[in-house]
């Protein structure tokens, strides 16, 4: 192509063609061939799919294609839910479970963040902690329930322990990775300005690790929800988990799914709350 920018020969450029006039007849327009492979928001699609799925579900029950015992239709689940709201048992169950999730999660998370921080900062803690976490994390907490009962009894303590322990290990791993992932050059920067150790920790490491820690919260909150059912295997009179277990034992499938619905709504609420927290704490990202 002779007419690009070659500075030494400006005079050799041909006169510009009139813009409107098409060049030689053999030319053809350049076609757009990109596109696709881009994630674009399609909110209505998700909503529509959801509505269709629910409608098909309801219809299969109404038309007796599926026995309501096997798959209670949404209307039956809502009816069961309404019954729970009406007699106040939903509130009572929800309060019991939320208290357990709240206390268990808080204890497990606080301990997990502390241990994870220690492992991220001190080599000795890391050397001890990493193999210990690898060895203890995969233990199914449900298998330990009889031990928890022996150690802590059948009151709230063993329920807190079940949730707390389940939350602890993922939090340790998330926090440790997050602290480990704080750019070392930022820490060196702080040190090069004579920042005291605690200040480096407070002002550089902690905020730098915050995204990873919050991501860990998201996972541990879901785990807490899963484990509340396990925790309420231990002598619980009330609680969403106890309710679900009981409905399953009695083969009351509409009640069972109503309980499951409450659990997943709870998960949705906690997820939304965490998103809000992330939005405020991580504005800088």
């Amino acid at each position: 192509m002779p007419d690009t920018t070659e500075a030494p020969r400006p005079m050799t450029r041909p006169a510009p063609q009139p813009a409107a006039q098409a060049p030689a007849s053999a030319s053809r327009p350049v076609r757009f061939r990109g596109g696709g492979f881009v994630a674009e928001p399609r909110r209505w699609a998700a909503l529509l799919a959801f509505v269709i799925a629910i409608a098909a579900w309801e219809a299969s029950g109404r038309l007796r294609l599926v026995s309501p015992l096997f798959l209670p239709p949404p209307s039956a689940i809502l009816l069961a839910l309404q019954g729970l709201v009406a007699d106040g048992s939903l509130a009572r169950n929800l309060a019991a479970s939320l208290m357990r999730i709240g206390v268990g999660w808080t204890l497990g998370t606080a301990a997990g963040v502390l241990v994870g921080f220690a492992m991220g900062i001190w080599s000795i803690a890391r050397a001890i902690g990493l193999p210990a976490v690898s060895a203890l994390f995969p233990i199914p907490k449900i298998a330990l329930l009889p031990l928890f009962i022996l150690w802590l009894g059948i009151g709230e303590a063993s329920k807190f322990a079940t949730i707390g322990l389940g939350v602890f290990f993922p939090t340790v791993i998330a926090t440790y990775s997050a602290v480990d992932g704080v750019p070392r050059n930022l820490i060196r920067m702080g040190q090069s300005f004579n920042m005291p150790w605690l200040d480096v920790l407070r002002k550089v490491v902690l905020p730098g690790a915050m995204p990873g820690i919050l991501a860990g919260f998201r996972i541990s909150a879901s785990i807490a929800l899963i484990l509340v059912v396990s925790a309420e295997m231990i002598g619980a009179d009330y609680g969403i988990g106890a309710f679900v277990l009981n409905a399953g034992n009695l083969m009351l499938t509409d009640q069972l799914l109503a309980g499951v619905l409450v659990l997943s709504l709870l998960g949705l609420a906690i997820g939304t709350a965490l998103s809000l927290l992330e939005k405020t704490l991580l504005k800088w990202r």
Partner: peptide, 27 residues
């Protein structure tokens, strides 16, 4: 007495401009 200027700037992304500068005076 000896202060650095870094190749990658080493700014704290969660702090505003003035707080990044103020950081080294806070202690």
């Amino acid at each position: 007495p000896v202060s650095f200027v870094f190749q990658d700037f080493s700014l704290l992304p969660w702090r505003s401009v003035e707080d990044n500068v103020g950081l080294v005076l806070e202690h």
